Amino acid sequence: METQLFARADEGEWTDLGQGNRRRVILHTDELMMVEFTFEKGGIGAPHSHPHVQASYVAEGKFEVTVGGHSTVLSAGDSFIAPSGVVHGVVALAAGRLIDSFTPHRADFLK
């Protein structure tokens, strides 16, 4: 498989996560994956953990973010990191969009 080097905003298949939330894989290699998530106001990214390191950028909106039991409110332009194995989650205080990067890639997000 040839590595995809570029992606456009209108490309990629969205996965409905329920309750107005959805995601699409933007790009990935074995080592790194970029994923876009959208949330309606009140949408929840339930607390969870995974072995991947996750770096997230708030592209739009406002979120209450909890990482390892520490919570804060982040808005467009802000970021957070969820280290490997650390419980984290979000609540959309306004409709918004997160751009998440995972290392290594999330095989469970691929079909």
Rank of each mutant, 00 (worst) to 15 (best):
50 H>D: 09
33 M>K: 03
104 P>M: 04
105 H>V: 10
29 T>I: 09
34 M>F: 15
100 D>L: 03
14 W>S: 01
83 P>N: 11
86 V>K: 12
91 V>K: 15
40 E>T: 11
5 L>I: 05
83 P>C: 08
90 V>I: 01
85 G>R: 00
63 F>G: 11
18 G>W: 10
103 T>N: 05
58 V>H: 14
69 G>D: 05
37 F>A: 11
51 P>R: 09
73 V>E: 12
27 L>W: 04
49 S>V: 00
107 A>P: 07
20 G>M: 05
58 V>R: 13
94 A>D: 13
106 R>Y: 15
41 K>D: 08
9 A>P: 05
106 R>M: 04
90 V>P: 02
1 M>W: 07
99 I>M: 11
59 A>D: 06
26 I>F: 04
100 D>H: 06
108 D>C: 10
61 G>L: 11
108 D>W: 10
40 E>L: 05
3 T>S: 14
109 F>G: 05
104 P>V: 06
54 Q>E: 15
1 M>F: 14
14 W>P: 01
14 W>N: 05
77 G>W: 03
84 S>I: 00
59 A>L: 10
25 V>R: 09
7 A>H: 13
76 A>D: 03
15 T>P: 01
26 I>N: 07
64 E>D: 02
86 V>P: 04
8 R>S: 14
58 V>I: 15
29 T>Q: 06
102 F>R: 06
48 H>R: 10
67 V>T: 11
92 A>V: 01
101 S>R: 00
53 V>F: 10
40 E>K: 13
105 H>G: 04
29 T>N: 06
55 A>E: 12
79 S>W: 11
96 G>Q: 02
4 Q>I: 06
45 G>C: 03
56 S>K: 09
76 A>I: 03
34 M>L: 12
21 N>I: 04
8 R>F: 12
47 P>I: 06
85 G>V: 02
58 V>E: 14
79 S>P: 00
1 M>I: 05
67 V>Q: 03
46 A>V: 00
12 G>C: 07
4 Q>M: 12
51 P>L: 02
67 V>S: 11
